[in-house]
């Protein structure tokens, strides 16, 4: 495991060097341009491997082996539900999907975070205020509840980069944005046949 990590670090440095040459001191610029505010602390400006690789401007060439290795690393790090049960309560999941609060400097850190799914995705047909940055997930439950489907959906929510490296979507599980229970509730909102997501559009 240790050797694998070292290999990734070297590979990343090599690929990153192909496009960051313009300003080596971007971290210093950011440290001097921002100040910590409430829970939004300065360490948030430090990037991990995914963030560093995915900061390449669109169209910049990245080394394929690096990307594959990093993607596999993310896939291996996904934590499936401890008790093997993937589906929670779709009604609580609806609240998580609709709430955009959490982790902003002006948010109360004692309150639960939202997933803000509607910012980017269409879900229930009767909610018209949905964003379009992500694909429509209306009728998502039609895909069924096979073990493969449950694991795929969970992984997508936990760490989107496990399948689609440099996707715009946040890593709701891996970054601790949502709790395991909240993720289960969102799973139910997506997959439960009774969920509004899976009702026919009127």
């Amino acid at each position: 495991m240790k050797r694998l990590t070292a290999g990734i670090t070297i590979a990343l440095s090599a690929s990153v060097a192909t496009w960051t040459a313009a300003s080596d001191d971007i971290e210093a610029v950011l440290q001097n341009s921002f100040i910590a505010k409430n829970q939004a602390t300065m360490d948030r400006l430090e990037r991990d491997a995914v963030q560093t690789v995915c900061s390449a401007p669109r169209g910049m060439p990245l080394d394929n082996d690096t990307l594959t290795t990093l993607r596999e690393q993310r896939l291996n790090a996904v934590a499936l539900p401890a008790n093997g049960h993937y589906l929670g309560d779709w009604q609580r999941g609806a609240e998580v999907a609709g709430s955009g609060r959490g982790l902003q400097s002006n948010d109360d850190p004692t309150q639960p975070n939202g997933g803000n799914c509607y910012a980017c995705h269409q879900l229930a047909p009767d909610e018209v205020a949905y964003g379009t940055l992500g694909p429509s997930l209306m009728g998502y439950g039609a895909r069924g509840q096979s073990e493969a489907m449950l694991q795929y959906t969970w992984t997508k929510l936990w760490d989107t980069h496990a399948y689609n490296l440099c996707s715009h979507m946040p890593r709701f599980g891996a970054q601790g944005i949502l709790t395991e229970q909240q993720l289960k509730d969102v799973m139910a909102y997506l997959l439960d046949p009774a969920s509004p997501v899976n009702q026919p559009a009127e």
Binding site: L30, A40, V50, Q51, S55, R171
Partner: peptide, 12 residues
């Protein structure tokens, strides 16, 4: 341009 594409924070 580089800052524009800089991904960071809990939401990347």
């Amino acid at each position: 341009e580089e800052i524009f594409f800089y991904r960071a924070g809990p939401h990347d």
